[in-house]
Simulated assay, not measured.
Amino acid sequence: MTERNAISTIGLKILMGITGFILVGYVSLHMLGNWQVFLPAVYINQYAYLLKSIPLVLWTVRLVLFVAFVVHIWSAIRLAQLRRSARPVPYDQRKPNGASWESRSMLLTGIGLGLFVVFHLYQFTWHLPPFSAFEGFTARLSETSRSVPDVHRMMVEGLRNLWVAGAYLLGMGCLFFHVRHGIDGLFSSLGLVNRRSFPWERWLAHALGWVFFLGFSIIPVAIALGWVR
C-alpha cells in the first residue's frame, strides 16, 4: 500500500468512526424513547407527537442522520476498494491471523443493518402493505383531545407477529456485532488504544453492544409473550 493510500485509509476509518458515533448516539436515544412502550400508551404517543410537532428540528435531525448514513456506507465501500487495489491478487488461503469474527464480518453485518433500517422505515414510517392499516391507528391526548398517531398500538400490532419479531431480533444481532467492532475500531483509528494496558475500549464496545441488543430485543420479546398489550 502506498503512503497516499495509507493516509486515505486512516482518514476514511476516522470518517467512518465519526459518522458511526453520530448513528450510535441516535440509536441510544431511539432505544430510550422506545422503552416508553412499557408505560401507559399515552406516554409514547405524546413523545412521538412532540418529536413531530417541530418540523424544522425533525427534518434537520433526519438530514444529519441521512448524510451520516450515506457517508458511513461510502467510506466502507472506499476502504474495501483501497484494500483490493493494495492486493489485486488474492491470497491462496485465507487465514484469520487472530482477527475477530466481528472484524471479518463488518460488511455482512453492515448490509444486515441496512436492510433492517429499510424494513423498519417500511413498517413504521411509510406504512406500506401489509402495514397500511397503521395509518388508521390514532389516539387522543387527554390534555388537548388532539388526535395523534397511536404509536403504542402500532408497535404492539407490528411486533406481535413472530416473523416480524424474529426479523427485529436478527437486526439487533447485526447491530450487536457491528457496534462491538465499530467502537473498538474508532478508538484504534484515533490512536487512543494501548494494548499493553487495560483494554478499556474493548470492554466499552462489548458493553455497549450488549446494551443495544438487550435493550431493543426486550421490546419484541415482551410483546410476543403478551407482556405488553
Rank of each mutant, 00 (worst) to 15 (best):
H72F: 15
S53F: 10
I18P: 08
V42Y: 12
L63F: 14
F69S: 09
F69V: 06
N34K: 03
K13D: 11
K13T: 05
G17W: 02
V64P: 12
R4E: 01
L12S: 11
A48Y: 12
L15I: 07
A41K: 13
F69C: 05
W35R: 00
V57L: 15
T2S: 03
L29F: 15
V64F: 15
L15R: 06
R62N: 13
I10F: 04
Y43A: 00
I54C: 09
A68H: 13
T19W: 13
E3K: 08
V57D: 06
G33M: 09
G17F: 02
Y26W: 15
L15A: 15
G33C: 11
I44D: 01
V67L: 14
G17A: 07
G33I: 04
I7L: 11
M31F: 09
A6F: 09
L29V: 11
L32N: 00
L23A: 10
S28A: 12
L58Q: 11
V37W: 00
S8N: 03
V71S: 06
A68Y: 14
V37G: 00
I7G: 04
I44P: 03
I73N: 03
A41M: 08
L51A: 09
L32R: 00
F21R: 01
Y26K: 09
I14G: 05
S53Y: 05
S75E: 03
Y26A: 07
L65A: 07
F21K: 01
M31Q: 12
N5I: 03
S53A: 14
Y47G: 05
G17E: 01
H30R: 00
V27S: 13
S53K: 08
H72Q: 10
T2Q: 02
Y47A: 06
N34F: 03
H72Y: 12
R62S: 09
K52D: 11
V37R: 00
V42D: 13
H30Y: 01
L51E: 10
L39M: 10
L39I: 00
L63K: 03
W59Y: 14
V61W: 09
Y43E: 01
V57T: 11
W59P: 03
P55G: 07
V24M: 15
A48V: 05
I54M: 10
L50S: 14
M31H: 05
V37Q: 00
M16R: 02
I18K: 09
T2W: 03
L29I: 08
M16I: 01
V57S: 11
S53N: 12
V57F: 11
F66E: 08
L15P: 14
V61Y: 06
L56N: 07
L29G: 10
Q46M: 10
M31C: 13
L63E: 07
P55D: 06
V27K: 03
V42G: 07
Y26H: 15
V71R: 04
K13I: 02
L63S: 13
T9Y: 07
M31T: 04
N34Q: 06
A48K: 08
G11P: 10
P55C: 05
F66D: 12
V70P: 06
I44Y: 01
H30A: 01
L58Y: 10
I14W: 08
Y43T: 00
R62K: 13
L51N: 13
T9G: 10
V27G: 12
P40K: 01
V57I: 14
I10N: 14
F38Y: 12
V24R: 04
S28N: 05
L65G: 06
I22T: 04
I14L: 14
V24G: 13
L12G: 15
T60K: 04
I22Y: 07
